[in-house]
Amino acid sequence: MTHNIYDLANELDRAIRLLPEYKAVEAVKVSLNSDTDAKAILDDYLGFQTELQGLMQTGQMPSADMQKRMEEIHQKVQANPLVSDYFAKQQHLSIYMSDLEKIIFRPLQDLMK
């Protein structure tokens, strides 16, 4: 039985969106986006992550100021129940995504052997 690979990929997309873990992240994100304090903390965290990744890609290590800022942002994330819940739920979903990634890339890994 042959399947169109794109049809299978779209079916996987739909199945992921039906996962309870996906729905949980989606629901908390709606709540988070309607809370200006939580949204500001998340935006600050994501902006800092992007900045940090750019720094690491150039081979630089975070300065003492950046490390202090990282700790401050981490404390804000932990102190806000909505933001910390968002990251906890996202972590649960990422387990599925990691497992799927392994399965999807297995044929390419087999070619490398």
Rank of each mutant, 00 (worst) to 15 (best):
A79D: 15
Q78N: 10
S94T: 11
H3T: 10
N4Q: 07
I16T: 03
N4L: 12
Q75M: 10
M66A: 02
S98V: 01
E26P: 00
L18C: 10
M66T: 01
Q67N: 03
A24D: 13
Y86I: 02
L100M: 06
V77F: 03
I5N: 13
A88Q: 06
A40N: 04
D7I: 13
D13R: 12
D13K: 12
G47A: 08
E72Q: 11
G54Y: 06
M70G: 09
T2R: 09
K89Q: 12
V30R: 10
Q109S: 14
I103S: 09
S31V: 05
L46F: 04
A38I: 12
M66I: 02
G59L: 12
G54F: 06
E21S: 11
E71K: 07
Q91N: 06
D37T: 06
I73D: 03
R106M: 15
T58E: 15
A24K: 11
Q57K: 13
P20G: 05
Q60S: 13
E26H: 06
L32K: 10
M1P: 14
T58V: 13
A40M: 04
Q60Y: 08
L52S: 06
V83E: 01
S34P: 00
D7L: 13
V28G: 05
R106V: 05
R106A: 15
I5M: 14
Q49A: 12
Y6G: 12
S84Y: 02
P81R: 02
E71G: 03
K113G: 10
M66F: 02
K39Q: 11
D7M: 11
K102D: 14
R17T: 10
S31P: 02
E71F: 02
